[in-house]
Design a protein around this nucleic acid. Structure first.
Lengths: 256, 256
DNA sequence: CTCAATTTGTTCGTATGTATG
DNA sequence: ACATACATACGAACAAATTGA
């Protein structure tokens, strides 16, 4: 016995990595760190990566566990191992993976003006979650759900509440275009304020299904609230993005 | 050439959740979804949560697996089960967990002006990563690493490059105060532009250690670049936050 | 060419964790 | 609660290929 095994009883000794035991299989944890090193070009194509022995020590795991991680990368075609020589990077990971999240209204609207969302059957949803600062609710809302795709791959799962009286003005458009884009063009909608909150989250069962990612994998959850001059909330959009697509650029002090 | 043992798992019966198989133990996946529902007050304290049968169906796992998840929550003191009655929420998860990430210079500086970071021994670091849009590099940089804590708990791990000629003007201050705060007060530093990029990432071994989170758990990675009127980069800060602390508020259209 | 060092490949035994039925 | 199957993980020993002295 005596050695540091994988123990479920969290009361047990600190295990590998000296970090909190996440109980994600170790070989997967190691694999994703290695994968990221390749993605970040810390190891470029053609480079020999660290030896099994070095990795064993760095991650404090058994040799077989490192091998398991490397076999995984090999099956992804990222590396190739040669007995007696080492393990070499053969391919790099896709890099243009960013979804730009908007920080002002125009850059929010412009890119999605002509998007065609895939509308999902709308389950009834009791009431939109409103927070203190959001404003006062409209008398009634319509609830829509949709998936946005890019190159056939889903990159956003949207749950949207639209004030019923605005929805009525262009109900057909709302089912074929992105709600915010439609909203921004409705004359009767005097948009006076729009704010967005972004948090790092984890995919729940719905998001995982619709985005084709695994349950609990990191996501960015954006919540966009649009209101009129009286503070009445016209639109609430909750949009979930896969975490590895999201990028936010913020000008803190703009260049002259 | 060994047989691919991993395939055995996907050969297993119904692929739960119909999502990509993340190979995180199912009962843990279920547990975190339930934990989040409690955190989000979807199930408030005192509420009876869904029955085992409902959860079995929702997640498409065996009854014992649901039980395992619920036992975990029970051991965390979040719920309590009663035979014949159901499972009830007994405690909610800490709620004021947000780190406000700044979207303008003043709100970036103000809260950290008086912070005392814990400076780490600075390993040498060859060159700061500069991207196209950042500007031109200064002749030389000083590299610092530090941990920011709040209530004894680390919430940020910072790697910072400061232009050497500025560092020299207040070297002592830089080791006891947050670099950006010092920088903003140095007279010689004519800050003309500051921008920040935030992406959702995953904790590498360093970040995991310093933040006390598990390897590969979600993080927010902020990269802040400050430059002067000639486009010379005075400061590059790479800051890693645990994902569940980060919140970004963005005014898209400001209220009058 | 041989030898030693390095590095990956393979196997055994053991223990524990996960999930089903 | 139990039996079964499989997955994860460790440590250790040994085998095979490669490299350079």
């Amino acid at each position: 016995m005596g050695k540091d095994r994988r123990m479920a009883s969290s009361a047990r000794k600190a295990t590998a990595f000296q970090t909190a035991d996440s109980r994600v299989p170790r070989y997967l944890q190691v694999a994703s760190v290695l994968r990221r090193r390749i993605r970040d070009a810390q190891w470029a194509v053609g480079d020999r990566i660290a030896t099994l022995e070095e990795l064993e020590k760095e991650f404090n795991v058994a040799r077989v566990t490192v091998r398991q991680a490397i076999e995984l990368l090999q099956s992804e075609g990222l590396v190739k191992s040669y007995q007696g020589r080492g393990t070499f990077v053969t391919k790099t990971v896709e890099s243009d993976r960013w979804m730009q999240l908007a920080t002002d209204w125009e850059s929010l609207i412009a890119p999605i003006r002509d998007h065609v969302p895939q509308v999902l059957p709308s389950e009834p949803r009791p009431v939109p979650r409103l927070e203190e600062d959001d404003g006062t609710p409209a008398p009634a809302y319509v609830f829509l759900r949709s998936i946005q795709k890019r190159a056939g791959k889903p990159y956003a799962y949207a749950r949207v509440h639209i004030a019923k009286h605005l929805y009525a003005k262009a109900s057909k458009q709302f089912s074929s275009r992105v709600a915010l884009a439609v909203l921004s063009e409705i004359k009767g909608a005097a948009i006076a304020r729009a704010h967005q909150t972004v948090v790092v989250g984890a995919a729940d069962i719905e998001a995982a299904r619709h985005l084709g990612i695994s349950l609990n994998s990191p996501t960015a959850e954006a919540r966009c609230v649009v209101s009129d001059k009286d503070g009445m909330v016209l639109y609430i959009g909750e949009i979930t993005y896969p975490g590895d697509y999201v990028r936010l650029n913020i000008e803190l002090i703009a260049q002259d």
